[in-house]
Structure formats: C-alpha cells, structure tokens
Amino acid sequence: MNAYTTSHRSKKEDRIMLALLRLSAFLAVAILVFIVGYIMVQGFPVLNLGFLLSSPTKMGREGGILPSIVGTVVLTLLSAAIATPLGVGTAIFLTEYTREGTFSKVIRFGTESLAGIPSIIFGLFGFLFFVIRLNMGWSILSGALTLASMILPTVVRTSEEAIRTVPDVYREISFALGGSRWQTVTSVVLPSALPGIVTGIILAIGRAVGETAAVIFTAGSSLRLPQSIFDPVRTLPVHFYILAREGISIENAYGTAAVLMIAVLLVNVSAYLIINRVAARRLERR
C-alpha cells in the first residue's frame, strides 16, 4: 500500500466521519428542541392568566393549575432551604475543616452513593420515614425533606468544587491578619465561592422541580391549594402525569407541561448566566 492511497482513503474516511458526527449532533439537538417545541405549541392555546391563577375543577378537566404552581414553588424552595445549609456545610467541612483521610472518605462515599440512588428509592424511603414513621403525612414538608435528601449530593459536589477554586492565598492572608478559621470561611472563602455555590443550588432546584416519582409518594396528589407546609400538594409534574395518564384533559396536560417546561428552562438559564458571569470575571482577573 503506498502513501497516496492511504491518504486518499483516510481523506474519504475523514469526510464520512465528519458527516456522521455532524448528523449525530444535528439529531441530538433536533430531537431535544423538537420535544420542547412540541410541548410549547400544544400547550400554548390554554396558557392564559386564568389558567395560571385559578384552581382546577372537575379533577383538572376544567379550571387552572394555581395550587400546583404554588405547591411546586413552595416545595422546591423549601427543599433547597433544607439542602443548602447541609450541602454547603458538608462542602465547607470537607474543604476547610478536615484533611483527606478515612473520615472525609466516608463522607465522600456517602455523598457519591446517595447521588447514584434512583428517585423511586427516595420516594419509598420518604414514604416510610417522613410520611409514616415521623407521622408527617403526605405533605409539602415530607416531600421537601425527601427532595432535599435527593439533591443534597448535587449541592455538596458543586459547592465543594466552587470552594476549591478559591486560591489558598486568600485564606493565608486572612489567617495572617489573625482571622480564625470560621471568620476566614465566612468573610473570605464563601464570598469568593458564592456564585459557584448558587449555581449548584439552582441546578439542584432545576432537578427538584421536574421530579415526579419521589414526590408522588411523599407530597401526595391533593388538588387543593395548600394552606401550610403540613398540607399535601400536587406538584406540576405530578398533575401533568395524572392529567395525561388518566386522559382527564390532554389540553390542560399540555398546558401544565408547558408551564413546567418554562419554569425549568428559566431556572437553568439563570444558572447558566451566573456561570457565564463568573467565567468572564475569572478571565478578567487573569
């Protein structure tokens, strides 16, 4: 085989592969964009203020989705409020208060294992532990605690990454100025790592908003507008699941899905914008 044919053949292979790669990129993007577009187009006709601000009647066949919107927002924020101190605290402990050793390995192993557990298992656990054992019933609180356990690993991981990017020089200066460890953490480390931490929390919220399996077992499926965190609630994904699955109202199901999708996209876009700003600032510093 001489040099010419080799290069000729490899040029051909090059072209074919490039075409295949381009095709797969196109397909991947096209499919995902199609799904979002399809839901938006189908859901758009029912989207209006009345739909967003009224309660469902006739099992959701008529009326709006206000209780589900309120429930989803409260449930998600509460779960983030529970997971944030735990997750950021764990990250601070891992980075600032302990050296790599058996103890930190145990924590890391626990966090990683937790990240791999399917949401249905969290649902079962939440039902057994929060709903039954702690007797909280199906409630926003049970759901939020279950979701908090589920998103905890994400918060730990992203916070730890963010904190690790804070240069050691910062800490050394703080110590040199007589700052204690906790003062260093609160006045130097956390402020610098904050955008990264916030991004992680927002990404975790994005995951929590769309969760169905874990929530349906713990927060319930009541259609009523919740009055307190001890009340059950039907979140947007659960409402969508029930409407679509039972064939109660396909139009309202699409409407619900569209609202859910817009919410998730907004959450993720804000996380993305924060990441970008941080990246831009890092570049400026250099």
Binding site: L134, G137, W138, Q227, S228
Partner: peptide, 12 residues
C-alpha cells in the same frame, strides 16, 4: 409531630 389533622383541621 404534626398530625394529619393540621391546618384548620383539614381532613385527609
């Protein structure tokens, strides 16, 4: 332990 009978004694 918050009972199921909570806000305004709602019924589940």
């Amino acid at each position: 332990r918050p009972r199921a009978q909570t806000a305004r004694g709602s019924i589940t």
